[in-house]
Design a protein around this nucleic acid. Structure first.
Length: 419
RNA sequence: GUGAGCGUAGCUCAACUGGUUAGAGCACUGGACUGUGGCUCCAGUGGUUGAGGGUUCAAGUCCCUUCGCUCACCCCA
């Protein structure tokens, strides 16, 4: 068959059978996050482009080449959101949520958009569930938020996850480290591979991640952020790790962990799965203590993370969620019975009972087969004989037993049986 | 943006070095069983072999173009 229209590259439909799993992930997130005092915020799916360019960083790949940007009628440059934090911060500042001063905890869920070449675990429309906390610098919050995320994954039944954590320092100590690193790499630049020569200019921290043996060798003696970290950052990081220990959350310190977005300070972390391919990070986040000021708000420390739901879904068993199925199937024979059933179905549905029927005038045999496949507990059968008697057959499918009941009492009897 | 692999029925896959009318399982519809599901058996529906062009007596198979999918790179969640 020649398909006339298909979804554009890098986007996908999530079909029944799969959506139940997504609903489960979303519902579980709400339950878990609300235990921790988070409230949902719904943010627009697009923003003025500057909201993203300012926060994410002008020279990041996201901003340079991956955003869906367009111009509206009045000439504003708009962009489909490539991530959630920027919008949440914008909303936080716009609505003065810092007033009165207190800790504000928000979560969001929904699609994000990045125009990249699709790959396993990477789509152009992908889904995230994110959480952001504003108003505290306390490392307990770093640990607690990461803990919430871990508990969430546990609730989903995920195993073989690893928490990697690092500190990126603050705007006091990071520039010093960066300078020292560049100094160190300058002499070794010709040892680096082509890609890393480019990274040298753009994001030298990334060179640590290179797979090339030469680059690995070149960075062996390099300075680390640790030795340049200021007292404040050092003790914040140590405390965060200690609180994670208190929560019995295993973690791996990864001094090479660098987040791609410009706004991170201090704590940065990722949750990595051992069961995925090249795109194996299923959640990531960290602290961004300067971003609110960037957006014109008062100095407000903040911490947040986002979960990649597509990747999370691919890790989940197929049986961890509830599939909604009909409770009652109504099978009819003959026109009069069909008419009666049409009304009856509505009556039952008004009661909140999930009722299914056949729409194709199939044989009774076929209707029962459909009832069986639908997985109903009871099938109501109404034929010519029954309609003349004002009665119907109530068939218990698993038990293969049936009884005759008055049509007038169906609603009452069925409600009782399903209880 | 770069590279590799793959596109055959709704789904999973066959079809030898190019050779009759492209098959099977599952699913679907019907029958055996006139108004009673599951199990069994029988039959049937379903294909422009992703699309377009080329080579050849002959193309699902070879070549080119294009679209899509997949995986990886770059980058990153």
């Amino acid at each position: 068959m020649t398909i006339k229209y298909q979804a554009i590259k890098g986007v996908k439909d999530i079909l029944p059978g799969e959506t139940e799993k997504w609903q489960f992930m979303e519902m579980t997130a709400r339950e878990v996050f609300e235990c921790y005092g988070f409230s949902e915020i719904r943010i627009p799916i697009f923003e003025k482009t500057v909201v993203f360019t300012r926060s994410i960083g002008e020279t990041t790949d996201i901003v340079e080449k991956e955003m869906y940007t367009f111009t509206n009628g009045s000439g504003d440059s708009l962009t489909l959101r490539p991530e959630g934090t920027a919008s949440v911060v914008r909303a936080y500042v716009e609505h003065n949520l810092y007033n009165p001063p207190s800790v504000v905890k928000l979560y969001y869920m929904g699609p994000m958009f990045r125009c990249e070449r699709p790959q396993a675990g990477r789509y152009r429309q992908f889904y995230q569930i994110g959480a952001e906390v504003f108003g505290t610098e306390n490392p307990e919050m770093d640990a607690e938020s990461i803990g919430m995320l871990i508990r969430y994954f546990e609730r989903l039944g995920l195993k073989d996850l690893e928490l990697q954590i690092n500190s990126l320092g603050c705007d006091e100590c990071r520039p010093k480290f960066r300078k020292a690193l560049l100094e160190f790499l300058k002499d070794r630049k010709n040892m680096l591979c082509e890609d890393c020569q480019r990274r040298f200019e753009r994001n030298p921290l990334r060179i640590f991640d290179c797979k090339s043996a030469n680059c690995h060798e070149a960075t062996k003696e390099s300075p680390t952020i640790e030795s340049y970290m200021c007292e404040n950052c050092k003790s914040h990081f140590d405390s965060t790790l200690r609180y994670l220990d208190k929560l019995n959350i295993p973690h791996t310190e990864n001094p090479k962990l660098v987040r791609g977005l410009d706004y991170y300070t201090k704590t940065a972390f990722e949750i990595v799965s051992k069961k995925l391919g090249a795109q194996n990070t299923i959640a990531g986040g960290g602290r961004y203590d300067k971003l609110i000021e960037e957006f014109g708000g008062p100095p407000t420390p903040a911490f947040g993370f986002a979960i990649g739901i597509d990747r999370t879904a691919s890790l989940m068993e197929d049986k961890n969620y509830i599939r909604i199925s009909p409770q009652i199937f109504i099978a009819t024979v003959g026109e009069k019975a069909g008419e009666k059933a049409f009304e009856l179905i509505d009556t039952l549905r008004l009661k909140g009972i999930r009722v299914e029927r056949d729409y194709e005038n199939s044989s009774l045999k076929s209707q029962l087969r459909k009832a069986d496949r639908a997985g109903v507990k009871y099938t109501i059968i109404i034929g010519e004989d029954e309609i003349n008697k004002g009665r119907a057959i109530l068939r218990d499918m698993p038990a293969s037993q049936q009884e005759e009941i008055e049509i007038l009492r169906i609603e009452e009897i069925v409600s009782q049986k399903l209880r």
